[in-house]
Amino acid sequence: MKTYFETPTCDECKSRFNNVFCSLTGEQVTEMSLDKNCSMYKKGQLIFYEGNRPSGVYCINKGKIKIFQTGEEGKEQILRLAKEGDVLGYRAMISGDPYSASAAVMEDAVVCFIPKKTFFGFLQGNSELSSNMMMLLSHDLKEAESRITGLAQKPVRERMAETILMLQEFYGLNGNDDTINASLSREDIANIVGTATETAIRILSDFKNEKLIELQGKRIKILNHSGLVKAAHIFE
């Protein structure tokens, strides 16, 4: 079956002004639009694989993507989630190293590939983009640091509460029923929290019994925000 699919242009991309490429000039946007390739990915498909060498960066036009590493016994550890407007693979591109993680689609996605040459051309020629990229990496580093303290110290229950709050903040709410705008499998949630799937299911049902959240299949709705913040032990 062939799915009708129209290549998005960078000009018309809704995400253009809230990602790192927002500082590109009109001319550069046209150049990027001509150089890139866009593909549609189905749920579960891989965009790049840990250990492979990058040949460009990926820009998400639509959809939800997880960045993960495969650890002990093939278990996934989800490092980050991404959504429209996010750019993927820039770290491997800049450092020249193989990908340190894989990217797979969680909800059907349209992703554009920007070749290495175009990407570095922009970095060299656009001072603001270089600065933005530097800030983005600084932010990533700060996040990685915080993850270490979070992982080391917080018990699973607190990490789960934190994850649910993070999902809401990151993906926002569905306008119709106020559920979090992402349907993640229980396994994905467990892999974000860094725990076994059974444990994740148990804690989710604890939260449900405590009326902190409501579960509608894969959808999660936060019923008691302050209760969840309390459960997450967030001080900041």
Binding site: Q69, L79, R91, I94, S95, G96, D97, S100, A101, L123, Q124, S127, S130, S131, M133, M134, L137, S138, D140, L141, A144, E145, R147, I148
Partner: peptide, 16 residues
């Protein structure tokens, strides 16, 4: 700036 980026990337890898 690219060198700064590379240096940051290297530290992020170490952290991960």
């Amino acid at each position: 700036k690219l060198l700064v980026m590379k240096s940051l990337c290297s530290r992020i890898d170490t952290m991960e």
